[in-house]
Amino acid sequence: MKSFETPIERRGADLAGKKEKTLHRRLSRQTRENIFGYLFISPWIIGFLGLTLGPLLFSLFASFTDYNITSRMNFIGLDNFKRMFTIDDLFKTSLWNTLYYVLFSVPLTTAGAIFLSVLLNQKVKGMKFFRTLYYLPAILSGVAVYFLWMQLLSPSTGLVNTFLAWFGIEGPAWLFDPEWTKPALLLMKMWSVGGGMLLYLASLQGVSNSLYEAADLDGAGVMQKFIYITLPMISPIIFFDVLTSTIGSFQIFQEAYVMTENGSGGPGNSLLFYNLHMWNNAFEVFDMGYASAMAWLLFIVVMILTIINMKIGKKWVHYEGGDDK
């Protein structure tokens, strides 16, 4: 046992002891909290490791093999990737179809949604009704909509061509003519821009009126106000929309699968999109290794495009918060 000479010394030693104790207790509490934290999120962690990261890494590995799910898994290096560019002609077709679709659908749906939201942002009586009306298509779910559009686009009896006939225009055969299948899908996509419209509408209402008032005082016209105030103010949402719809458009699958006979790719393979071709390889001929390789290539393509988008985005996206963060 120690003996202390002075009260001060004793006090100092007590403090040190206390400090040590609390420090120890706090540490263990932190650890305990960490443990509980991990426990609470463990369903997600296990799900993520087992159902997302695991399969992801597995498919990365599989992309270098001739994996067929049941009996084969030989390492074949880059053969799958070589095959895409040398042997598999449908790969090029599918990539081209997908790029075509992305190139048109992203700008069209974005512009369409902005246009609609600006219209629906006017202060007119009964606006709520119109907003509901234009948003309505967005709540209808996939397959039902595709079947509906297959009827609408029917060459002789469909509503679209009947409507065109009123103006003396002979409508195309839409889903039966390889030249018109993709435009037909774009038309269908345009019909359901309501989801994007809602986003823009919300952000439009966040644009401060004082900006427009100031512009009015300076004598700015409607177009000028739109280009110099509205667009920059909602640019973060445009950026978000362009980014997500680009990624989404690359993944187009359902439409083509449902609207072409058993996912065959439509007339002249004009609707054979990348994911459809990949699906056919994976689940029709069980070439899982090759399908995995295709998936990873698409991943790389989309990632590069997203990075480019982010880089360009810095130039035109206006963040009100000030520094670009």
């Binding site: 065959s264 002249g268 393979n269 056919n280 390889n281």
Partner: peptide, 19 residues
């Protein structure tokens, strides 16, 4: 040739479309 039909069909389509 597990996937042969998918290779032949587009060519047949093209003939029937007069291409």
């Amino acid at each position: 040739y597990p996937d042969y039909q998918n290779r032949i069909n587009p060519h047949i389509d093209n003939v029937l479309l007069g291409k």
